[in-house]
Amino acid sequence: MISLKDITKSYRSGSLSVDALRGITMEIEEGEFTTIMGSSGSGKSTLMNILGCLDKPTEGSYLLNGEDVSKFKKEKLSQVRNRMIGFVFQNFHLLPRTTALENVELPLLYTEEKLSWKEIHKRAGEALDIVGLGDRKKHSPNELSGGQMQRVAIARALVTRPSVLLADEPTGNLDSRTSLEIMDIFQRLNREGLTILMVSHEPDIARFSKRITILRDGLIISDKPNTPRSSADAIAQWKDEAEIMSEETA
């Protein structure tokens, strides 16, 4: 479904050139749940942006559902992003002073599909139900917690029914309990057949995925399947601060 071949990316600033990616080749099949790990500056975000068609590789080819999107023009890439990709950002990127529902509707305003307003509202509402925020439709971001904001962002990524969900450090700004809840949503979506690719540098988070790829200095140094830990178990075993504190004193 996704096929990267010898992807490189160099940033040029003046005479200085930074090679963020130095030849990435990788395949991602439908239904996978992959985590890309690596230390800061290893090129994870750069790779995700290329996968998300937000950026173009310097060299190499990127086949998405059989199409070589690395050759696409700006306008066409917009449609690819809209149709095939759901992107979740580390810092949510919700529109301020705009309700959760309207935030989720946003991608539907730009689809090629002919949707009536009724369908748009309905689909956005359904997406919010999927992430468990059916009762927060009319809330604006400043009335939501971080975890809720990220769930709105996930709903927004899902609303166009993309073939792949890309998430760049989706739990980077969340506490560990809320992170678990996000992983619970991801595992559930993956079980229902959604392909997920996420970036994280937390091993605890990566453990929930089925495959872990590690980057260093713009190259893949490890790519292994992983037996995912169940988010339901993790949540069941969750101890809150009070419990941890009382255990330590006991």
């Binding site: 998300g52 700006k74 306008e75 992003r81 990127h93 946003l106 689809t111 166009t160």
Partner: peptide, 16 residues
């Protein structure tokens, strides 16, 4: 700018 970036990211084209 960030709002525009987001709109572009979710599929808005330049003309939109």
């Amino acid at each position: 700018t960030r709002e525009i970036g987001l709109r572009l990211a979710v599929g808005a084209r330049g003309p939109d």
